[in-house]
Every structure is written in structure tokens, then in C-alpha cells.
């Protein structure tokens, strides 16, 4: 449920390093909490995002949440398929439900994020 190779933010985003770029999505916990995701407002490709500042919005029928950037940098790709099928955020949050791909200013920023183990503790779930 919470892959070990990802880093996690206090606002329930995950970050995954892929060849010096960082892929970003929301955690299973956040997706469950929102329940059925109906809309994701994405930034433009080329937009600058800042560590733990909002970069987009995610909505379910009765709730809305800001998306926070787990790393500063430039957006190089956004998951446009979410406009047609936002439900993949629920069904496959770490795969097809990714949200943006960022070219980071400084990869070391990721060290400030939580490990899977720390995140599990933060959300009050048993690592088992």
C-alpha cells in the first residue's frame, strides 16, 4: 500500500525519483480519504512548483484538497489522462494515477520527506 521506494509528504503526496526527475502523486491514504476522485486540476507544463506549496487541486464529490509539491522545480509533464479518467487516482495511485513529473532544483530536498515507515506511523497505520 505504501511502496518503500517512495518518499511521502505530510500532505499525503508521494515522490518518486526517476532518472533525476521526480514523479508526484497522492497516497492511497489520501485517495481513500477523498473517496471517488472526480477531478484533478493540473498545472501547465513548464510551471514552477515550490516545496510544500500548492500546485493543483484534487476533488471528490463532497471534498476538495490542495495538492502540495513535495519538491521544488519545473513541471515537465502532467498526467492529462486524469481529465478523462480521474478514478485511476483511486484505483492505481502509485501507477497510472500519477499527477505531475517535476525536474527538481535540488534532489536533496527529498530528504526532508518521510520514508514509507515514517509515513505509516504519521497516518496511524500499522506497518504490517
Amino acid at each position: 500500500m505504501y511502496p518503500k521506494d517512495l518518499r511521502y509528504s505530510t500532505e499525503h503526496e508521494w515522490a518518486k525519483v526517476e532518472q533525476r526527475r521526480v514523479r508526484v502523486g497522492v497516497t492511497k491514504f489520501a485517495a481513500d480519504k477523498l473517496s471517488d476522485v472526480v477531478f484533478v486540476e493540473l498545472p501547465q507544463v513548464g510551471a514552477q512548483v515550490t516545496y510544500m506549496e500548492p500546485f493543483g487541486v484534487i476533488e471528490s464529490v463532497k471534498a476538495v484538497s490542495d495538492l502540495y509539491a513535495p519538491v521544488s522545480g519545473r513541471v515537465v509533464e502532467v498526467n492529462t489522462s486524469l481529465s478523462e479518467a480521474p478514478e485511476v487516482v483511486n484505483t492505481d495511485p502509485y501507477g497510472r494515477g500519477w499527477i505531475i513529473l517535476v525536474e527538481p532544483k535540488d534532489l536533496k530536498e527529498l530528504d526532508k520527506l518521510m520514508t514509507a515507515e515514517q509515513y505509516l506511523k504519521a497516518i496511524g497505520e500499522d506497518p504490517e
Binding site: 477531478f39 476533488e59 471528490s60 464529490v61 463532497k62 471534498a63 476538495v64
Partner: peptide, 9 residues
């Protein structure tokens, strides 16, 4: 599309 509205946002 009620997330635009005051009772949620």
C-alpha cells in the same frame, strides 16, 4: 460540481 461552492470550499 459542488466543490466550487461555499459549503465545501
Amino acid at each position: 460540481l459542488q466543490t466550487r461552492e461555499q459549503h465545501i470550499r
